[in-house]
């Protein structure tokens, strides 16, 4: 379910680091909690974010949720497809519905994120609570 090569935040974002470029999206757990996503608000290429800073919003019928940048960096690409097809976030949260790519400015921050196994344990605690 949760790809081994991704790292995960406790705010339910995932990041895949490929040579200093991090691809970021929200997790399957997050999309299930949100319900049907009907709108997504993404930043512009060139925007910079600190780790744990909100970079966008996803909205379901009933609520708005912020999405946080798991690491610091500059946005180099955004997934334009999500504007017209926000339902991709429910259908393919870990692949097709990637949201942004950032040039990672401090790779050490990746180490503070959870592994797939660590994240699975974390969400189990969350839903068990």
């Amino acid at each position: 379910m949760y790809p081994e090569e991704y790292r995960y935040s406790k705010d339910h974002e995932w990041i895949l680091d490929q040579g200093g470029i991090g691809t970021i999206g929200i997790t399957d757990y997050a999309q299930k909690e949100l319900g049907d996503v009907v709108y997504v608000d993404l930043p512009e290429v060139g925007d910079t974010f600190e780790a744990n800073e909100p970079f966008g919003q996803v909205e379901s019928v009933k609520a708005v949720s912020e999405i946080f940048c798991p690491v610091s960096g500059e946005v180099v690409e955004i997934n334009k497809k999500l504007e017209d097809a926000p339902e991709l976030i429910n259908e393919s949260p870990h692949q097709k519905a990637w949201m942004i790519k950032v040039r990672i400015s401090n790779p050490d921050e990746l180490k503070e994120l959870l592994s797939a196994k660590g994240y699975e344990e974390y969400i189990q605690e969350q839903s068990g609570a």
């Binding site: 319900g35 049907d36 379901s60 019928v61 009933k62």
Partner: peptide
Amino acid sequence: PVHYTGTAQEH
């Protein structure tokens, strides 16, 4: 209950 199966689906 805010929702059962999902707001859009219930709607």
